[in-house]
Structures are given as structure tokens and as C-alpha cells.
Write a protein that binds this DNA or RNA. Sequence first.
DNA 1: GCTACATGCTCTAGTGACTAGAGGAGCAAG
DNA 2: CTTGCTCCTCTAGTCACTAGAGCATGTAGC
Lengths: 141, 141
Amino acid sequence: MLKEISIGEAAKRSGVKVPTIRYYEQIGLLAAPARTDGNRRHYEDTDIRRLAFIRHARELGFEIDSIRTLLHLQDDPNQPCETADGIANARLIEVEQRIRSLNALKAELELMVEGCRHGRVAECRVIEILADHGKCAHAQH
Amino acid sequence: MLKEISIGEAAKRSGVKVPTIRYYEQIGLLAAPARTDGNRRHYEDTDIRRLAFIRHARELGFEIDSIRTLLHLQDDPNQPCETADGIANARLIEVEQRIRSLNALKAELELMVEGCRHGRVAECRVIEILADHGKCAHAQH
DNA sequence: GCTACATGCTCTAGTGACTAGAGGAGCAAG
DNA sequence: CTTGCTCCTCTAGTCACTAGAGCATGTAGC
């Protein structure tokens, strides 16, 4: 007889924390699994794969709603993959924008930190730049 | 007699939205201003500068608690500026890490999107990579 | 003075994606 | 049989706002 996968075991195998698994069940991202006599959840291998899929997508910054769509697509392999492609593409554009904006922030933070002469707050470059946006180096923010 | 600055005017001048200004007052980030006879807030120029400071810091991704500390420092210009420097430095390190991680994500998303042949979901690279972390290009995530 | 309409007020609840904690039950090992 | 771990449900908290209800006040045109 196969050993049943407890929620703790599922967490270990998928890398998704126990309360998060329960949360995903609650919001309907993961189907409610069967229960043991003692009312404990037990999972199948397919659930573990689904959890790993979700975790990976979350790491890539996809929103729960996008993941919901991606999971539906995965369940129906004959559909054209334009929707999946579109979601990934949208996310790629987001990430590119975020990188650009973070690079601008980085430049400005470097200016602050380098300009700081470790003296008094009165002549601190960090405080000064924060107080006056005009002192920013053309940062796109 | 000077024209009093209403909350709407303060919002325009500082770039912080009206409900957000009230929120900052509520959490004690901005001192409660004086009120008119009709119980409306009216602000001074110093409040506007403080709001602009907060807005700029928020744009740079500083947390409210850090901003609280930075504001205290600004109020006391004789203090050494190490704390401010430390906060900015911590934020810089965060931003640098975030950029690295986003670059890894970008690479992976590009792989997905480029690999997609616009066919069926069954052979879609997007879904495939999401389902199997092992297919990632050594991404640090 | 009257009528719109904008702007202000307070208060509560909602967002996203979890996370923390209370209070209890089940289960395996020593 | 007791210890200690994992599990259960439920509620509330996190962060930094944002949205909306329901009302009061202020202002511009007539």
C-alpha cells in the first residue's frame, strides 16, 4: 500500500509552506484533497506537481489570477497557447520596466550614499536629496 | 492675509493623494495640522515639504518605518548622519539584489516566450518551463 | 438667497498573498 | 501513558494604501 502524502510532506516536496497550501485550497487554486479517517488532508503526486508549478510561477512574479489561467490551460493541452504566451509576455514587459526603474533608483541611491561625508545630518546628502527631488539625477521616477 | 493650504491643495503641491495624506496623519507620519472653523485641515509650507520628502522616499522604495527614522533625523540636523547613511545603504543593497533576481527572471521569461511556437498548450514552452523548474537556465530564484 | 457641485469630514472595509496565533485533536515513539 | 510533533479550524494581522458610504461645508453662478 502506498504511503499517503500528508500536508507537511507535500510542503517539503513542493517547496510551498503548509499554511500557504491550505490558503491555495481556500481560494480554489488547488482542489481540496481527500481526507484520512482522522480528517487530515492527503495529496497525490499530481497535487505536488501542481504546487510546484504554482510555486515556480509565483517565484517568477505571476499573480494568482494569471496562475489560475495558466493552470486551466495546462489542464487542456489542445488549446492554442496564445493565452499562455500573452501572460508570459506581459510579465516580461513588466519585469523589463521594473528593471529599468530599479536601475534609476540604484543610481540615485549610489549618489546619496557616495555623497555622504559621514558628518552631521545638516549636510547629509541622503537627507538632502530626499528633501529635494530636483537634486535627482534625471531618475525616471 | 495668507491663503490657507487645503488638503486638496497640499495634495497637488506635494504629489501625495488626499486620502494618503490623511492616512499619513493617522499613522503619525505627519503631524495633525490645524483646522479651520469648519473643521477642515489646513497646512503650512513645512508640511508640504515634509510630504514631498515622504513621497520621494516612498518612490525610492523606503518603508514607512525607515521614513519615520529619516524624518526624525531631518528634524535634528546636529546628529551624525550614520543612521541615514545606513538606511540608504541597506536600501541600495536591496535594490541591487532585486535587480539581479529580476535579470534572472527576465532571462527565463525570454526563454519561455522565444521558445513558444504558438502551437498547442501541449508543446508550449511557457507551460513546460513553469511545470519543471529543472528546465530553468540556472536562474537564481 | 438659492441651487449646484466640488471638496471636505469620519468611519469602515477591501486589496494581495500570505503569515501568525489560539485552541484543540490525532498519532507515533519511548 | 506521556511527550512532542503534526494536523485541524478559525480569526486576525501584515503593508501601504484605496474605495465607498453618508454626511457637512464652501464656492460660483443666477
